[in-house]
Nucleic acid binder design. Structure first.
Length: 291
DNA sequence: ATCGGTCAAGGGGCA
DNA sequence: TGCCCCTTGACCGAT
């Protein structure tokens, strides 16, 4: 069981996701930005080591515009040594690593150009993990995508597209239940057809549930992860009280978290804490010996 | 130096 | 149809 937080460490005075405007794109600027992003990523790894947080989500902005047509720079080659040494550090300390493309990456889109751009973006994410020589437990986590007024058809489109993608992406791709469209049940239906692992998100499940209890949902998704995929990935967050449903809380509610652990005790998984104050919440969990 | 409008990009939900 | 929300702050031009 490993625990971590996504993309940004607020205790450090650096970010690994620094970017710039498309208008000001230049190869020089890209190189500089990626260098400083990699510096920061290494500092995050060191911080995590010291604090025993062995699950890390790498920001999609590590190499800005990498999947955009404007970028013809061979960043993999240029940063190959650094990327592989970062990967070595991950492996030496048995880190779990993941990435999570944003809302613009929609594999099952009914628009062809969106679909193709999504493939490019998934390719980029796979390239980052490949350049670090990470095994297939390093995952790229996405949502199923749009519904377009016909969920069955849209699920089928996801399945067909999945079958068509390259091995390089396929070996890392996992799907997560989302808060309005595709529930755990929907993800499991898809997984049954193509064997893709399913990430469980407790907050999304509480908003967009199926007939599954948390215990049953976790039990079912656990079976979608094979040995080569590593332990299941679970996302935990709590609702920001009084705000729009789905908004992430500012800091962790330890009582709520204990309740969650209570229900999930019998399962093995790696846990990503998606809460605004990031590593501080994880620290609270560890300090209270909850994980 | 500070401020705030804007940022590559999709989709869903509501008035 | 058009606007807002999510992701999420950071960038950068105007002052």
């Amino acid at each position: 069981m490993r625990i971590g937080y996504p993309c940004i460490n607020r205790s450090l005075d650096c970010i690994a996701s620094s970017t710039f405007r498309l208008k000001s794109y230049s190869e020089e600027k890209l190189k500089k930005t990626v260098e400083s992003n990699l510096d920061c990523l290494e500092r995050m790894i060191d911080y995590n080591l010291e604090n025993r947080m062995f699950f890390l989500r790498i920001t999609s902005d590590l190499v800005p515009f990498a999947s955009h047509e404007v970028c013809d720079f061979d960043w993999q080659k240029h940063f190959s040594e650094r990327l592989s040494s970062i990967g070595e550090k991950f492996r030496d300390h048995n880190f779990r690593v993941s990435m999570h493309p944003g809302q613009y990456t929609v594999l099952n889109s009914n628009k062809n150009d969106v679909y193709h751009k999504s493939i490019n973006d998934l390719e980029y994410h796979a390239d980052v993990l490949d350049a670090m020589n990470l095994d297939t437990t390093a995952k790229i986590n996405i949502h199923v995508g749009g519904v377009y007024d016909d969920k069955e058809k849209s699920k089928m489109r996801f399945i067909k597209r999945y079958k068509d993608i390259s091995k390089k992406i396929k070996r890392r791709l996992v799907i997560e239940n989302d808060e309005k469209s595709y529930s755990v049940k929907d993800c499991l239906d898809i997984s049954k057809e193509i064997g893709i692992p399913v990430t469980f998100d407790n907050l999304h499940h509480s908003i967009n549930g199926s007939h599954y209890s948390v215990e049953d949902a976790l039990g079912e998704v656990s079976r979608t992860w094979n040995h080569k995929d590593g332990p299941p990935i679970v996302h935990y967050s709590s609702q920001l009280t009084g705000k729009r449903t789905g908004r992430h809380a500012d800091t962790i509610d330890l009582e709520d978290f204990e309740g969650f652990l209570e229900k999930t005790r019998k399962y093995d998984f790696d846990l990503m804490i998606e809460i605004k104050d990031k590593e501080k919440s994880v620290k609270k969990i560890i300090e209270n010996s909850l994980f």
